[in-house]
Amino acid sequence: MHDHTGFKERVDGVLVRLADEEEETLLALHTELFPLTEQLRRSLARGKRIRAAFLYWGWRAAGQPDCEAVIRAAAAMELVHAAACTHDDIIDGSRMRHGQLTAHAAFDAAGQRSTALAMILGDLLMGYAGHLFTSCGLPGAYLARTVPLWTALMRETMAGEFLEVLRTAAAPAREPRVAESLEVARYKTAKYTVERPLQLGSTLGGGPGALSEAFSAYGLPLGEAFQLRDDLLGTFGDPARTGKSNLDDLRGGKPTALLALTLEAAGEDDRRLLAKLVGNPELVPEEAASVRELMDRCGARQRVEDMIRDRIGRAAGALDTVPMPAEARSALRELAGTAADRSL
Rank of each mutant, 00 (worst) to 15 (best):
M126Q: 14
D230A: 09
P172K: 03
E282K: 11
I50L: 15
H2A: 11
D269R: 15
L200T: 12
V16S: 05
L26E: 11
Q199H: 07
A116K: 00
D306G: 03
H98Q: 01
V70W: 11
T146F: 08
D296G: 14
T25H: 11
I91V: 14
L166S: 13
V16A: 09
R303S: 10
T31D: 14
W59F: 13
A210P: 01
H98V: 02
M324E: 14
A214G: 10
T168W: 04
T338K: 06
A110W: 10
S181M: 04
L44P: 09
K188F: 06
R60E: 02
P176E: 02
G111E: 01
D249M: 01
L263E: 09
R49L: 11
Y142T: 14
L55G: 11
L335Y: 12
V147M: 08
F54T: 08
E164G: 07
A84S: 10
A75E: 00
G317T: 13
P148W: 07
T262F: 01
V11K: 03
F226R: 00
A171V: 05
R167I: 01
A73V: 03
E305S: 03
A169F: 13
A316R: 15
A315E: 14
G160C: 12
I120L: 14
L40M: 02
T262E: 00
L132R: 03
A260H: 04
R342C: 06
A169Q: 15
V278F: 01
E224P: 05
N280R: 07
G130V: 08
A84I: 05
A217S: 10
L143S: 11
D123V: 10
R333F: 13
G47F: 03
S245F: 07
D123L: 07
M126K: 07
A61L: 08
L273R: 15
V165R: 12
M1L: 03
D248H: 00
M77L: 14
L222P: 06
R251G: 04
G267M: 03
G279W: 02
I91M: 12
A260W: 04
V147H: 09
A105S: 10
I308W: 05
T102Q: 12
R10K: 07
L258T: 01
G209W: 00
A257Q: 06
P325N: 08
G267W: 08
I312W: 05
S343M: 13
P35M: 05
D89S: 08
A116S: 07
H87D: 07
H2G: 05
D3V: 07
G140V: 11
L36H: 13
G201R: 09
M96T: 11
R42Q: 12
A118R: 07
A171N: 06
R113G: 04
V11H: 04
M307K: 06
E38A: 11
W57I: 13
A257S: 10
R95W: 12
L36V: 09
A179D: 15
E78Q: 04
A225K: 01
D249I: 04
L55W: 05
A106V: 02
A169P: 10
L263W: 13
A45M: 02
